[in-house]
Amino acid sequence: MQIDPYYVIVTAAMLASIYGLLAIGISIIWSSLGLINMAHGLIFALAGYGAWAAAQYLSAYGPVVLVAGIIAGALVGMLIGVLAFLPLYDKPNYVLRSLIATLAISLLGQQFMLTAFGPRSRPLPPVFGRASFHFGTAVVSAGQLGAIVTSWLVLALIAAWARHSRRGLEIRAMMRNPEGAALVGIGLRSTAMAVMAVTGGLAGLAAVLLSQTYFVSPFSGLTPLLKGMIVALAGGLGSIPGAIIAAVLVGLIEALTAVSIGGQFVLITQFLFIIIVLLIRPRGIAGIIETVRE
């Protein structure tokens, strides 16, 4: 079978950028809040609905849809922070209880979406137009190109913000050592809400970008959650460079699997990849790069 390398590269880059957005969110939440956010898929799905509602009732103009998705994601992220982090973070057995709380929230949210919007999936309007470009032998749609460019642009912006702003410094301090951050006067609650808003916004962006090729539906968050988890885990929970490397690898594996043996085996090869990575490096790829939170 002839594998078109350009097609694989484009698909892999597109998937890597979207998984990277999700995995970095999961990773940052884990390292700064100590929370395994199983409701990240819910943020994804609800942000998709937010973007859909904006396109339906406000304007189908691309940037409006994109911004609506990001805002909806940030709001849902903050809601999860209010429900699962604020009441629990100083209570005994926090990690397990918050994990179960996020699972319950995601179950609640799924059923809510099912009753509010129905099981039918909804399409989003094309944000980046319908043009297509030729890249080698492959045809790149504007949606794919836009997804790749936008996500890397936003990631770069976030990285700059985290490096140069006061809030970013607080978040980085909290990622390094939450107790120490609290001791030097960083408000855990406000910083946590900022983290949830930023990561929720990232998930919302990923939702709009991925919905250029897929649809928005109540259960559309499950697969992105699983893949985001795979990437975050393989990269090493709590490490951003690890997550980016793992996102590229997982995207590449998904594209290669889909081209060579078929789309239905994607999850199997991805899990095999993560099993092998974790057996060799139990703390993920980032074990090489930096220490991760205990």
């Binding site: 629990l88 209880r97 179960i100 699972l103 319950a104 929230i105 179950l107 609640l108 059923q111």
Partner: peptide, 9 residues
């Protein structure tokens, strides 16, 4: 899910 959330919180 609500019972689960309440019991955890």
């Amino acid at each position: 899910a609500a019972i689960m959330l309440a019991s955890v919180l």
